[in-house]
């Protein structure tokens, strides 16, 4: 495989901002392999103390839902408010819910 940047794979980058938070998608980049992708992610997306942990995954390894299926997939949930846990009373002083 050639190693010119034109052949580098696209990677999606996920960064954990602080310990305890989840990894959030922050963008994408090109790299020849996962190790280089991590270094590029470090240099591209954590220059301003944005993170304490990085995940990278090849974009072509992600299976995504088809936007044209959005109605069929998601609209059935529109009229089912009872699925929201809004009927519970939250005791005072409980944080993080």
């Amino acid at each position: 495989m050639s190693t010119t940047p034109h052949d580098w794979a696209l990677y999606e980058v996920f960064v954990r901002a602080r310990a305890g938070l989840d990894h959030k998608h922050v963008g994408s980049l090109h790299a020849a392999d996962p190790q280089m992708a991590l270094q590029h992610a470090r240099d591209t997306y954590t220059r301003r103390q944005e993170g304490v942990s990085i995940w990278v995954v090849r974009s072509d390894q992600i299976s995504a839902s088809d936007p044209s299926d959005a109605d069929a997939l998601f609209s059935p949930a529109d009229d089912k408010v009872y699925r929201h846990p809004t009927f519970y009373t939250i005791p005072e002083g409980v944080e993080g819910l």
Binding site: T4, P5, H30, H40, D43
Partner: peptide
Amino acid sequence: APAVEEDLALSN
């Protein structure tokens, strides 16, 4: 640099 990511890496 050969790629924008390398541009950033070298300048970092």
